[in-house]
Design a protein around this nucleic acid. Sequence first.
DNA 1: TATAGTCAATCAATTGCTTGATTGGAGTCG
DNA 2: CGACTCCAATCAAGCAATTGATTGACTATA
Lengths: 208, 208
Amino acid sequence: MLDECSCLKAASQESRGDKRRRELVSAAYRLIEEKGFEGLRVRDVAAAAGVNIATLHYYFPDKEDLIRGVIEHIVQEFISDNAPIVHNTQMSAADQLQAVIANLENRVRDHAGMCVVLNEITSRAHRDASIHETLLEMEAGWRAHLSALIAAGHADGSIPPSTDAAGTASILTAMIRGLIIQAVYRLDKPDFQTIAKLVRDWIGGMRK
Amino acid sequence: MLDECSCLKAASQESRGDKRRRELVSAAYRLIEEKGFEGLRVRDVAAAAGVNIATLHYYFPDKEDLIRGVIEHIVQEFISDNAPIVHNTQMSAADQLQAVIANLENRVRDHAGMCVVLNEITSRAHRDASIHETLLEMEAGWRAHLSALIAAGHADGSIPPSTDAAGTASILTAMIRGLIIQAVYRLDKPDFQTIAKLVRDWIGGMRK
DNA sequence: TATAGTCAATCAATTGCTTGATTGGAGTCG
DNA sequence: CGACTCCAATCAAGCAATTGATTGACTATA
């Protein structure tokens, strides 16, 4: 039925090698989630992906290459996770902000693994300049997103102009990070609905 | 001059063994700060403490024992660091709360190492129940501290009764954690003075 | 057939831990 | 005092297992 000619496949479909690469990265990702970088062994990654160690090294010449692959993967996951939220013309900006925070509950539940791995990676940023740079970009993305939301609130009147967009976005980013850690590592059980309402009151000015 | 009789020394002074133990834990602590658990090697710890590996294992039968020692050490450091802040009758509770946050700037500067190690340990909490329990206690301590401060604010009138002490303390703990991570891992450069004022306004109700 | 992909076997280095011997200081007996 | 015992503390050497990486041969597929 379908034309399986390689020239057509090549454009949209991933090659066999790309698939392997993806499987290996995915296996590494799961192992980091489970045992941290501390317990990451290339042998285990290969076994989890169902291939020989030599095959792993064929795709990722050394362990650090594999880790770089995992980081690229998490960046993609992060981007595709956060992109769809923007631009909702139905709700006021303040409502959207509240929704973003309230939604963290689902986010943490569905992506606990990503949070764990992201935290492991953050520790590594301390010793690896390129990881540090990557995280800086992700962090800046979050801040820009929140900052834009607050600016939209200035425009639609749901957030008072006295609320500094950049500064508040910076604080919110910190708060969100802290809440995620509390939830993922079960150090507290944040009530995201209540928190979302509270933050909305803070940012948007008290409502009666 | 001094009576060096062992029976007198024993009561107050640490034994030779205790000193070694302390040196080894301290060396391990520094290495975790530098390389993470990922790069922690008992050989390196022994070398940094200037003793043979066998001597290390004489005091800490295995690596996990050493790590337990490091965790006990950081709990002590954390306690002795945070204890002195409580009970200041000169300032209003709201002012004290503001001061706590403004003070994070110095705290992060002077104890960046502790923050880094604490983060490494937090990752481990995911796989080690006893670490999880320890962190729960530390977290609860912070929350209780902040909660008490807010309750004091209810009493002295600097914080409106409508501000829920427990809930707000929980959020503040998350925010503080996030800010510390941002600062220590240089993902952002939080302006703690401004943030402290802002939070004070949020918690204490807007001032004109 | 040429090449990308895969594997069994293996290597050298690392790593947690052990062994057996040695040291030095505190207590004891003659 | 001085020879002797005892034991905590220390070390050099080494062991077995692990670990990241390589080699060279084999295979499927385009």
